[in-house]
Amino acid sequence: MTDQSHFVEIRHAQKSYGTLEVLKDISLNVERGQIVAIIGPSGSGKSTLLRAVNDLDSLTGGEVWLDGVQVNKDLPHRQYEKHINAMRQDIGMVFQHFNLFPHLTARENVVMAPKMLKGLSKEDANKLAEEQLEKVGMLDRIDYYPSRLSGGQKQRVAIARALAMKPKLMLFDEATSALDPELVDEVNMVMKKLAEEHMTMIIVTHEMDFAASVCDRVLFMDQGVVVEEGPPEIVFKNPTKDRTREFLRKHLAGAA
């Protein structure tokens, strides 16, 4: 086994459903504190790649490493479950459709996992909920049920819920795609704040402006391969590949 020298390392990721190959030998390194954006048309495999990082979608080939530990270890079922549950505590994830627990208040959403998995006392849990909800600007809605929150507010609570586990890495799977346009900014602001705190993040997004403004590196994926990769200045302003250019032209035209 080679030395693991990057914070997040995806090695030769491969995934197929039957004969359909959705990820074709993808490798990606992310350093501590780095922010990587993955862009590309729908069906390009970008979400699948992101979901492979915490093994929500299992790879059929290749390895994922986080901070020196292999995430998708080959272990017997029981041992594997134990291992992956521990790994996932370090990997926060934010979904397109928020997936807040509707039967729990914002506070309860945030503290459920820390209470259960870290055995927090009631006071510590309350402090944690307040701290995390304050951070995303949702302290005034702490005892609201999700049904009484707007999409942007739900997503901010979902981010607080992920942060409450004090993850080493945050994954964002189209966190603003399901939001009304006027609600996108409030979520982007929270993500920017995380960026300023040097949270390591992998972001799958359709928002080119946002990606360009926060990330250190951009990956353009199409049909299961990384077509182009580099700093946002290059990928967005001077893409070298035709496919990137075409995608950006369509996408930026659509956004304008």
Partner: peptide, 22 residues
């Protein structure tokens, strides 16, 4: 919605914890 289980598992809950609590 299957997103509910996914969100729970993503936080580190086991299959049973996710079933029982979410």
């Amino acid at each position: 919605d299957k997103g509910q289980r996914e969100a729970a598992r993503t936080l580190g809950l086991s299959q049973w914890q996710a079933t029982y609590n979410v």
